[in-house]
Design a protein around this nucleic acid. Structure first.
Lengths: 225, 225
DNA sequence: TCCATCGCTATTGAATACAATCTTGCCTGC
DNA sequence: GCAGGCAAGATTGTATTCAATAGCGATGGA
């Protein structure tokens, strides 16, 4: 076969691509908060007809990223600063739950290996005692891998879906985490180790609590009570 | 003006009506788990064209009620028994969070009145010592009112949205709660009173814990964790 | 001057028509 | 008899067209 890439699905439907694009723009802030969406204009800009665009818009509204008023169209939802804090607490609660599930079920050998690897990578970054773009990139990847491994180990698709919706919101996106001093990273990696320990020793409630505190701490503060 | 009803919005868009209908059918089980959806057939059955139907389907997929595979269509997601337990734990975590937020902010006079009223109605039902269809209906209404009041008092729209998604899933829907012995109801109303107390005295963490236990208990069991 | 009403325009909602993709069964060749 | 591929039908994806609604300014009256 001389085809260039046999396993690329022929082409994702436009509606999905459009939805991804719009999500992207909201994360980038290219779509301002509260902005009203004009279907015809946006469709032209994206080079598609209104049909797939409308499909994407309704899906995003169902995800909670857009507001929709019948006969009045879509507006970009407002995600201002205090909303971000709230989103982090939701995320903390859900990830804590995932952690408890994972501890209850126990880790599969594969999952354990993946978690250990992510943890080791994080610790390796800490060992460098440096905090350049390269280290930051490595840490972020390891961090995402760790959290996703736990989420997968929870074995609860509904929870994964729910969490994904929260993470897709502009505020609490993992890629938005910016405050990275070496101390922060060290602290977080240490959190990860303790979380993994609690899961390994089969202590679901402790695992949940630790994960909850960990995620709350990412946003940068003690719990507010 | 002799118009019959001036404030009824002329008619909800078909897409929204169709989405509601389909949600309804999934809750009723009229759409079986894993069933593949044929757009043309379903559209004809509902008396609409494929356009609003597809809008509704994509929205439901975004909510997590349907599976969607590009170029292969939609299938009804499977919500079997063990998934319902998991959904209840998600619901417990989220409602617990709502409870904590409500306690942190404090209740507005209106919210307090509404919560007290719902609680009183529940207690009135308990006082009857009867458990017929009528009492059950009254209790259910009071129960929903109580939970919604707290959710509103939490003042966190993202949380409300997230919780709504979970509640809309076939399993944990509030209307599906069936085990209603007088003892169950008494217990739940008592839970409500304690929760309201914790909120009133400004004890966020206790409020959260109580609500979490309360919701977990609805599904009928001690936490498994 | 202010308010209500009418009608025009811009925008959204839905249906139909068409294109692309997948599925299925048959046929050919081995 | 079986594997592979090809073609026809079915199903999904997109564009275009038309209908319905909301927004808004003009116009006329009080």
């Amino acid at each position: 076969m001389d085809g260039p890439a046999p396993n690329i699905p022929p082409l994702l439907p436009r509606a999905l691509r459009v939805a991804d694009t719009l999500r992207e723009r909201m994360l980038d802030g290219a779509l301002a908060d509260g902005e009203k969406i004009n279907e015809a204009r946006l469709a032209a800009e994206l080079g598609v007809s209104r049909t797939p665009l409308r499909t994407a818009l309704h899906a995003l509204a169902a995800e909670g990223l857009l507001d929709y008023a019948p006969n009045r169209g879509f507006t970009v939802r407002d995600f201002s600063a205090e909303l971000i804090d709230e989103a982090f607490e939701i995320r903390a609660a859900l990830e804590g739950l995932a952690c408890r599930f994972a501890a209850r079920h126990g880790l599969s050998p594969d999952a354990r290996r993946a978690a250990e690897a992510a943890l080791a990578e994080g610790e390796a970054v800490v060992e460098t005692n440096r905090c350049g773009a390269d280290e930051l990139q490595r840490y972020r990847a390891a961090n995402v891998a760790f959290h996703e491994t736990i989420l997968a180990a929870a074995g609860n698709r509904q929870l994964a879906d729910t969490l994904r919706l929260v993470l897709n919101r502009p505020g609490p996106s993992l890629r938005r985490i910016v405050a990275f001093t070496p101390i922060d990273i060290r602290r977080r990696v240490d959190d990860h180790r303790r979380i993994l320990e609690a899961i390994s020793t089969g202590d679901p409630w402790r695992a949940e609590l630790l994960m909850r505190e960990h995620v709350s701490g990412i946003r940068g503060g003690a719990a507010k009570g």
